[in-house]
Amino acid sequence: GFTKEQQRLGIPKDPRQWTETHVRDWVMWAVNEFSLKGVDFQKFCMNGAALCALGKDCFLELAPDFVGDILWEHLEILQKE
């Protein structure tokens, strides 16, 4: 899971503390893990605080249908851990 990747890359547990690099690493991991298609990494050029502050509607505009939902749900789980 993502926990191993977080440990390997030194990504903080709390997504709100992520840098732009951490956000990119997470999106890249999720794309590979969940076989997601059509993700534009440029749209995720922000730090974790900005990403978490978007709200669901704005977040879902960053990625194609269903893909955004998967990313959003995973981000929500990470914020609760």
Rank of each mutant, 00 (worst) to 15 (best):
G1R: 07
F2I: 05
F2M: 07
F2T: 07
K4T: 10
K4Y: 12
Q7E: 15
Q7R: 12
R8W: 08
L9W: 07
I11C: 09
I11V: 10
P12T: 02
D14A: 04
R16E: 13
R16I: 12
R16Y: 11
Q17C: 12
W18K: 00
W18S: 01
T19C: 07
T19D: 11
E20D: 09
E20A: 12
E20F: 05
R24V: 11
R24T: 10
R24G: 09
D25Q: 14
D25L: 14
D25I: 12
D25K: 14
W26L: 00
W26F: 07
V27I: 14
M28N: 15
W29E: 03
W29K: 03
W29T: 04
A30D: 03
V31W: 01
V31Y: 04
V31T: 14
N32Q: 14
E33A: 10
S35Y: 06
L36T: 02
L36E: 00
L36P: 02
K37Y: 06
G38F: 04
G38A: 07
D40N: 08
F41M: 15
Q42G: 14
K43Y: 05
K43I: 04
K43R: 13
F44S: 02
F44Y: 05
F44Q: 00
F44V: 04
F44N: 00
C45F: 13
C45T: 13
N47K: 07
A49I: 07
A50N: 09
L51E: 00
L51C: 02
C52S: 07
C52P: 01
C52H: 04
A53W: 03
L54I: 10
L54M: 13
G55I: 02
D57Q: 10
D57A: 11
C58A: 15
C58M: 13
C58R: 14
F59E: 00
F59A: 01
F59H: 00
L60M: 11
E61F: 02
E61M: 06
E61Y: 01
L62R: 09
L62D: 00
L62G: 04
L62V: 05
A63Q: 06
P64G: 15
P64F: 01
P64M: 00
F66K: 15
V67F: 06
G68P: 02
G68N: 06
G68Y: 03
D69V: 10
I70T: 13
I70K: 11
I70G: 02
E73M: 06
E73I: 03
H74M: 06
L75C: 00
L75Q: 00
E76T: 08
L78H: 03
L78K: 03
